[in-house]
Amino acid sequence: MPDKIQVSAPILHNQRLQKDYYQLDLSAASIAKLAKPGQFVHVQLPELQHRILRRPFSIFNVDLDSGCLSIIYKIVGEGTEHLSKLAPGDVLDLLGPLGNGYTLFPKNRKGIIVAGGYGSAATYLLAKNAPAPPVVLIGGRSKDDILLQDDFKRLGCELKIATNDGSAGHHGMVTELLTQAIAKTSNPAVAACGPNAMLKAVSEIVEKNGIDAELSLDHAMCCGVGACFACVVKRKADTPNGWAYSRTCIDGPVFKASEIWWD
């Protein structure tokens, strides 16, 4: 059984969730079967021949019975704009599942998920596969940037929201909620996905509390399988300058907070 495959995946649904965020459901049973929380698929954009590179998307959810694999995306450029116009029956070429994925929360520790923006999509399967529903902290600029609240609630997760503009939940940063949650939890296990500034703040908070966290990094990629060294990040290493470049696509996208070398 190969660890990753390239398949043609027909679109089942492609619908707007809110604001510029969309959910894309694909028929990709073979990848769905292999997928672990925190892994991603590398998607070729059809009919956009002058855009030659694939786009990586975290696997949001899989349904093993129907073979459905879902991703969540935000329109940020020409590629995702094009993706939003595709319809059921259109076929996408997928490579996956790629990357290492999160470690599942252990039974004896309370899981805390920290998600920023569409980072909540990358952490949903982790919550779904947790031995007990984790605490989920979601942050965004505004209430329209908070995704998947109902999905996490349906899993029984305790959900807390933070928005920069105060339009929903805590008026401030999601990392402030993390500090509170860690203080209230004995032996927490922290997993996060979101913008780099958020992940850096998560790293500082867990370090202060004497614990570690697993962070999923978002990075533009070319090959997605470790061949091209385009998506590298600095990881602490026994080198003269204290770090070495690691590939987000294959050594990550999930790294321990204590491993990342923040500039």
């Binding site: 030659i52 533009a220 091209c228 060294f229 385009a230 590298v232």
Partner: peptide
């Protein structure tokens, strides 16, 4: 060899630019 700083690649019309730097 550590290679070059990031970003190392950019998609451009009909292709891409890379400066991986032979990591």
């Amino acid at each position: 060899s550590a290679g070059n700083p990031t970003p190392r690649t950019a998609e451009v019309y009909g292709g891409m630019l890379n400066a991986i730097g032979l990591q």
